[in-house]
Design a protein around this nucleic acid. Structure first.
Lengths: 228, 228, 228, 228
DNA sequence: GATGAATGAGATTTCATTCAT
DNA sequence: AATGAATGAAATCTCATTCAT
């Protein structure tokens, strides 16, 4: 399901090359999640069990590798949207937003990149947004979402979810669910009973205090730490 | 009110040293906002009009400098909370959350750091949270916020706001206001009329597409970009 | 007449192998002229329509490939010398030197290699020099060249021509003709009328200023240039 | 006499910095002569007894370092031209050309760079050419050089000399003198007695055969040699 | 025999931190 | 006390050569 590059049609890779390609992508995904995008290509190559040269044979630059992974994520999001679009009772929207949260949580470390302007599977992202608009319209027709909410507000939902994940991934991996529940409540029309008990459990105070304890979140500043 | 470091009380600095200290902090603040935390210490020192040696005499590491600024921001937040605590009609909470948004927007680039675990003015942060809990209780007593919302949910509000700012700072600097309005609507009890027209304007589609176009937001990955 | 390598006589190649060999040499010749000796073997293989493995089956190292081409050029020079040797009126020398200039201009990029010590068709080079000495002697006997000029001076003519070509190949491809005309005038005996108008046109000032502007000539240093 | 950069006026360097700067330039000059411009910056730094960081503090890129050295050479050439311009009997031209040969021989390894288009002390080069034109005119007025020789032909003299040096620097360091003597003979008017014995000794056959034996000339291909 | 994927040393450049002046 | 020159590890990327398919 993963396309080789965003653009080129190109001939199929040899089997061993294809294997390595997947291993590199897998390793990169893990390393980026663990150490942020600043992680060195050496580490990725080592984890993938290949030389750096191999990595660079497959991906022209580190950025290209990142873009490829971003593209994969965008395709994953598009698949979710298409699945959600099969519902015609207006519930597809919430389902999709929850799915997007799950995907973002699984690929933390790319949180910014997914939404930032880049050519990586841009078409998929565009189509995703089109479907999202359509799902919003349906939800509004079913009076599940207040009418003055716009499609751009859906982006706010996803971006704010990303922010929660970025902050809490280590201390409270499910925090985004609680947040999304609260935010979605704010989107409902006035008539809706917003008082039904919240399904997601709130974070504990201890979790809040533990935020940012893990090394991961410090990746951006790693270079600032003494080396000997 | 600003302590020299989060930990040491220490003896007072000579007048010129104190001046240098302030100039470094001011310069660092500007440079970090402009180029992200990856900005080099040389640039900060140059902007402050001092040598890097002087910078390192005042701050043990770059991280310590960052922590100091984070401490300043936390003190700023505490001041906001104390101001909000003077209201006793339950409206202090929303006022504070909006204030926190403004502060976060002003200090984008430190977004993660503010909430992440660090010793920088940790006491201020703790006190801030205490006041926030108190304000939430008041708001709930006035039935402005639904009762099953917890203090930890307030952290979610602030973190998600941070996420919006991080994503949109260049393309739509006020996007966080719209987001907060929607999220706060979700916190209100069922009886509240959530249908009053939303005051904040939604983003345009163009703004959404422009997200991440500016160089600033890319700073974290700058080193990873190919040079052709 | 082309031997497989400068050293080994070896068994004949299979037909297809021989074909590949020629295609590689042809491709290498073109690529080296276009991008200098720093051009990568991948590019040569691609242009030849073979894999790098095939290239390395035919030529032990990149250096061996270069030597082979150098050998070809030396054979070409020998052929020129044999042709010139058919003249017995003393004019063969100038004719040969002009021919050598043409060959060098056609194979710029190998300029140093042709004359530098290497085993590539060393016999051809030796024979070439023998013929050159003979042609010089004839020219001197006909009083076309002053008697105190030696055979080693002929090398100076060819090397200096190479220098002109290296410097001017992009800005003034025929500059070497003017240079050679001047130099040959210096070889003539005092009685000769050196005042006859020079046949070759001098370079324009603009051409002189344009020297080294083109990318080609910079190839040797390409890696040393900043990328900003 | 060496200017710090081709452009900047800038404040003077600290003494230790200035010392290191000179040591780097000196080391670079030696290393480039010994191994060509492809020599690594590590080697230069090691030879200079400084870290690579120091080298890069002084010179933004390797190219900038090269340009600086080229600039120095061009200034050296300009000084020669000014000295030669003090003669008003027409002999300044030959004197200058010989001087240029000496300078080129001393800085082999930069042979191409000196004349190639680059901003390094471009003004000096321009002024040098102006003086050269003037000297040529004087020589022609004194009937020391034939009238149909142009200023651009002087460039041919210098470039061809560079070619001789490049080829013969190891095997016959003075070969360029013999070459220049022959070439200058070609520039004299017909009436001149060109039969006076040539002052410079010709190369021996052995020297010609030894050309290119030393490692230096092979620098461009060093990377092509096996590493283990 | 042919292919091209894989290798990994090495090149240039950056930057947090130390230390001589 | 202040300065900024020096350090050197680490990052990205290239390419001649080897070897599994």
């Amino acid at each position: 399901m993963t396309s080789r590059t965003a653009t080129a049609p190109a001939k199929p890779l040899r089997r061993d090359a294809a294997t390595n390609r997947e291993r590199i992508l897998e390793a990169a995904s893990q390393v980026f999640v663990a150490h942020g995008l600043d992680a060195g290509v050496d580490e990725i190559a080592r984890k993938a069990g290949v030389g750096v040269g191999t990595l660079y044979r497959r991906f022209a630059t580190k950025q290209a590798l990142i873009d490829e992974l971003v593209g994969t994520i965008r395709l994953e999001l598009l698949a979710l949207a298409r699945e959600a679009a099969t519902h015609d009772d207006g519930t597809g929207l919430e389902q999709l937003l929850r799915g997007v949260g799950t995907v973002q949580a699984r690929h933390s470390g790319f949180l910014g990149r997914i939404w930032h302007h880049s050519d990586a599977e841009l078409g998929a992202l565009t189509e995703f947004r089109r479907l999202l608009r359509s799902l919003l319209r349906q939800a509004q027709e079913q009076h599940l979402v207040r009418p003055d909410v716009t499609a751009t507000d859906m982006s706010l939902v996803m971006w704010s979810t990303a922010g929660i994940i970025e902050t809490t991934q280590d201390a409270a991996p499910d925090a985004w669910r609680r947040h999304q529940e609260l935010l979605l409540a704010g989107l409902r029309p006035s008539g809706t009973d917003t008082a039904h008990r919240l399904a997601e459990r709130p974070l504990t105070e201890a979790q809040v205090r533990r935020v940012g304890t893990a090394a991961t979140a410090q990746s951006a500043i790693r270079k600032a730490t003494p080396q000997t």
